[in-house]
Design a protein around this nucleic acid. Sequence first.
DNA 1: AGTATCGACGTTATAGTATAACAGCTCGGC
DNA 2: GCCGAGCTGTTATACTATAACGTCGATACT
Lengths: 176, 176
Amino acid sequence: MAGTGAMMGAMFGAETGKLLDRAARTCDRNGSRLTDIRRHVLGLVLDSDRPVGAYDLLDRLRQSHKGAAPPTVYRALDFLQEQGLIHKVERLSAFVGCVQDDRGHDHAHHDHKVQFLICSVCQRTVEIDEPRIADALEAAAARHGFVPRRSTIELEGLCADCVAEADRAEQAREPG
Amino acid sequence: MAGTGAMMGAMFGAETGKLLDRAARTCDRNGSRLTDIRRHVLGLVLDSDRPVGAYDLLDRLRQSHKGAAPPTVYRALDFLQEQGLIHKVERLSAFVGCVQDDRGHDHAHHDHKVQFLICSVCQRTVEIDEPRIADALEAAAARHGFVPRRSTIELEGLCADCVAEADRAEQAREPG
DNA sequence: AGTATCGACGTTATAGTATAACAGCTCGGC
DNA sequence: GCCGAGCTGTTATACTATAACGTCGATACT
């Protein structure tokens, strides 16, 4: 019986496990509690290779937490967003993990400077971090006397893989 | 009985009326039909000084179109977005008008290069058009082999008016 | 130990946003 | 007149999110 927290870790792969441990340390530093449910939800998000919707998470969470209901998962998601451990992709109403380096840059600042590239075909979403984009937006805002708080910068289109795939399909139809 | 279309125009103010006529010409040029319902929904959006939700529009639409249901308004909204006559503000799940100059710049291009400043307090939302922001985002996308289609660039914060209001309230509490 | 408090969670109900599916109608071209 | 395409009517339902209230357990202070 070497601690239930450690048992939870075993439910995810090694890679995810490392990230979860890192997240736990982040929460410790913030004086907040990464409970079993929160840790589990974070694990589910991290284990996915694309953004996950709240009700998808709920279905998966129920496999281990029978009593889980929508508020269960939304509360966990709210917490994880506050900790900067996940982000919401607005266009998809779905969530992606964002576990930084331990000594990673200031999250409070980082949090509203993130950008996403969202593939319309495969839904895979990558986070990019080009401060100049958010900076340009904030500069424009300042010219309107606008005080910024949170930005949503998302670009929907085709990822490199799906472009290549589409090209291949095109070639097949018109081999000349 | 001088045409029902003209009668519809009378339901909105002069300013909105002009924009509606302009929108009608845009649709003509595109070979698409600005029907009564679509025109009415566009008028309601244009008449509001802040973004309007679909079900708000539905309530208002029902005052003249008794049988209107959610699909009625969503269809109109889809059409108007395709025509570039309105935009959706993702953070609010609400819609704002965007009727350009008659000889306005290319809409297909414009459409995915728009940015919004959204006030958390009063909800008023202004559209800004800083090509450099969208350009920077697309340049970053290109470096990932990503082919862009539509961007969502929204900044939530406090508009100049609400900042001033907040300052005044602050002064009142601490007059020193 | 007693107890006040606070944060997390359980549970039920409901609000808010959006679309599926199919039927009927109208308008313009033939 | 008839056909086809596009627009609308209608019903039902899916999906996303939160309100409201009760319980429980850990913590800290007495």
